[in-house]
Amino acid sequence: MNGDKMPAGAPKKFVLDSSTIITISDNCLIRVMKNLAQKENISFIIPQSVYTESVETPIRIRKYELNAIRIRDAVDEGYIRVQKSTPQLRARLERLQSLADNLCTFNGERMRLLQLGEMETLALMREINADALGIDERTTRMLIEEPRNLLGFLRKRHEGKILLNDSALSEFAREYGNIKIVRSAELIALAYEDGSFGQELHTSKQALEAALFAAKYGGCAVSADEIKSYMGQIR
């Protein structure tokens, strides 16, 4: 990013989960992240496990190699930063894992909802005091933002006794409940609104709508109604 003008002040730190970075790179929008980083003074950060999952492993598989190269280039150019694991992060992750694994039970047995990679992203968020979390998958987002709705959904879906551990949930909410979440859909919308599409995509309503639906079909947990409602507000 040498020579590019950046807004004054400390950059806002956005930690990205693998689901968001995969949606963005799958749709060839990774360089839009570079423009966003420069225009909005955002530092995009991924934990080492996300780098392994989105670059080091897939770069050896023909089918995924190109996407892996795109993400690796973003890291090499410096607009996505890899945060190495530290003893403090590992300790925080262990605490989170024990908490997350005890959030709910099904017929008395622990029901594990999250996987280690998602938990590491959350732990990193807190460890570096990040400003926002980019995550496209649904369950982690719901657990942070609307755990009671998630419980209601689980109860409706499963024919058994699902119980929430209130003390574990309170602790989880204290630690992680106020995380601000964006999805690739909002990063795309922000890029459109501030002109960060740059040379990657024509800046038009049609291109914006197409990019949002591409994110949706790429697996971002956004509904068609949300996209239509947002597009209705765009002039």
Binding site: R138, R141, M142, E145, E146, N149, F153, I181, V182, R183, A185, E186, A189, L190, E193, L212, K216, C220, A221, V222, S223, A224, D225, E226, I227, S229, Y230, Q233
Partner: peptide, 14 residues
Amino acid sequence: HDELPPSVGISGRM
């Protein structure tokens, strides 16, 4: 993702 939309949509998050 259409069956269980989030309580905060794109506009709210923006």
